[in-house]
Write a protein that binds this DNA or RNA. Sequence first.
DNA 1: AACTACTCCTGGAGGC
DNA 2: TGCCTCCAGGAGTAGT
Length: 285
Amino acid sequence: MPELPEVETLRRDLVPTLTGRTITEVELRLPKLMTAWGGLPAEALVGCRVERIERRAKILLVRLSGGLTLLMHLKLSGQLAHRAADGSTLAAGGHPTPAFDAPLPHKSTHLIVGLHDGSRLYLTDIRQFGRAAVFTDADAEARLAAMKLGPEPFDASLSLDTFRARLARRPKPPIKTLLLDQSFVVGLGNIYANEALGEAGIAPTRPAGTLSPEETGRLFAAIRAVLERALTEGVADLARNGAAGDRDFPRFHGRAGLPCYVCGAMIERLKLNGRSCYHCRTCQV
DNA sequence: AACTACTCCTGGAGGC
DNA sequence: TGCCTCCAGGAGTAGT
């Protein structure tokens, strides 16, 4: 799925196009999209005005009038598109395929939210792993609390010292496994975990407890640098099949068999907990 | 408690 | 062309 940079970029794009609009109709085409988390029926959205759009971890929170919150998690293949009444795209983001300018709705469009100005918000998800739910604000907080999410990577409360302390509590798992664990730190997915480890020069398989203080510092800085680059220069560029795109970002993920940007050695792929790790054996030790 | 394996789905790419 | 296998950016749950 969209990881932190994709969700945050989408949030920023939706703020000016969605805020202040009032929901006039809702069409839920795939009921299970809204059953996993429970909450109110989709129709509860009708009549609500969009007050604010927030993000926690990889989850979008649409704060509504009437004390309600719409939670959305795009998981692996979810996508949101806000289209004007004439069909033009106002904002779109999430998984890069299908193309953001594809005709909507299509067979993987599972939720359509109509706004009073005639615009529509479409949630599409080829793999149907995404989730959405409408809660009272209090229930939304309870739902988030139940997820036991770790700290945000850019939160001031996550200092290098607290990062090291959290690592010290989980010494056994491979460091890559820990980076993907949302209770350890939120926002990283497979792409940016691979990128952070690559930039830090740390092998994904290293048990977390074997990292030196110096390596921990490099990793902490690399996590923020990689996410910051995605937020400021644009999210990682991936082709349809998950391979790296034309841009030099990502620099490791999806580049098996291609030369490392740093040393020229061939990037290799290995599997860890069922997820692909792309790494340079020379640079990452 | 900590850690791992399995599971929910669809569709595109590549081998034969 | 068709069929097969593998692969894809997540995370909840059940088992050891």
